[in-house]
Each structure stands twice: as C-alpha cells, then as structure tokens.
Computed example of a mutant assay.
Amino acid sequence: MTPPLWVVHCLDAPGTEALRARLRPDHSLHLRSGRLDPLLYGPLVAEDGGRAVGSLLIVAGPDRESVEQHFRQDPFLVHGVWRQIRVDAFTPSDRAPVRLTAPAAGGAP
C-alpha cells in the first residue's frame, strides 16, 4: 500500500538567517530519518530570489499525526527558525506534468 502524500509549508521567523545556515546539516539529517519519505523539498525564497523565508516539503507518511510529530522534532522548529508550519494532505492531479509517487510502504527514498 502506498502511503499518503503531505505538503508541509513552513515560514521562517524574522532574523533567523544565520541560525538557519548553522542548523541546516541537522535539519537535513532529521528530514531523512524517521517514518517519512521525503519526495521534494527546498527553501522558499524572498521575491528577489535572495534569502530563504521558509521551506516547502512534500513527504509520504502514514498519517497526519506522524507527519506533524516528525516536524515538531525538526531542528528548524525546535530552535526557532520556523515560526509557523502547516500540514496538508496532497493528491497530485493525473494531468500534472510532473508525477510524484510515494514509495511502497517500507521503501526508502
């Protein structure tokens, strides 16, 4: 059975650029640990294309609680880089030009 997909939209707190840079290795390690399969992720950037202002991630996970629990433990949230996180269920359109499919249960990215 294929786990559901989730979009995680995170907004940074003001003035956390240096903290984000310092915690990035720990955040990246955390993202790849646990029960979630990260499929697509990256920083949201300011309109001028400069500094990061948040993160957008698409992950496969068994349920909303598992996704929320995983991100509650992310170093970016624990140490105050992210000021807000929103988790939404996601179903890609059959007409989308890019296909995101979750790995089979128990699979690794």
Score class of each variant (00 low, 15 high):
residue 75 P to F: 04
residue 97 P to V: 15
residue 81 V to F: 01
residue 86 R to V: 11
residue 19 L to D: 01
residue 109 P to D: 08
residue 103 P to Y: 02
residue 103 P to Q: 05
residue 49 G to L: 04
residue 39 L to E: 02
residue 93 S to L: 09
residue 109 P to T: 09
residue 60 A to H: 04
residue 65 E to C: 03
residue 37 D to Q: 11
residue 64 R to H: 07
residue 2 T to Q: 14
residue 69 Q to I: 01
residue 79 H to M: 05
residue 66 S to V: 12
residue 84 Q to D: 10
residue 51 R to H: 08
residue 88 D to T: 06
residue 26 D to T: 08
residue 15 G to N: 10
residue 54 G to A: 09
residue 71 F to S: 04
residue 21 A to M: 13
residue 5 L to N: 07
residue 53 V to W: 03
residue 37 D to S: 13
residue 50 G to E: 07
residue 20 R to I: 10
residue 5 L to V: 05
residue 52 A to D: 06
residue 106 G to I: 05
residue 103 P to I: 04
residue 46 A to K: 06
residue 21 A to L: 15
residue 64 R to N: 04
residue 99 R to G: 04
residue 23 L to P: 01
residue 95 R to V: 13
residue 9 H to E: 09
residue 106 G to E: 07
residue 17 E to D: 14
residue 85 I to R: 07
residue 92 P to T: 09
residue 18 A to M: 00
residue 29 L to I: 09
residue 105 A to T: 09
residue 17 E to P: 00
residue 40 L to V: 15
residue 15 G to R: 12
residue 41 Y to H: 15
residue 15 G to H: 11
residue 8 V to F: 01
residue 69 Q to Y: 02
residue 3 P to L: 06
residue 43 P to A: 15
residue 1 M to T: 12
residue 6 W to Q: 03
residue 99 R to A: 15
residue 11 L to F: 01
residue 29 L to T: 14
residue 32 R to A: 13
residue 63 D to R: 02
residue 22 R to V: 05
residue 105 A to G: 10
residue 104 A to L: 12
residue 66 S to W: 01
residue 52 A to L: 06
residue 22 R to N: 06
residue 12 D to N: 07
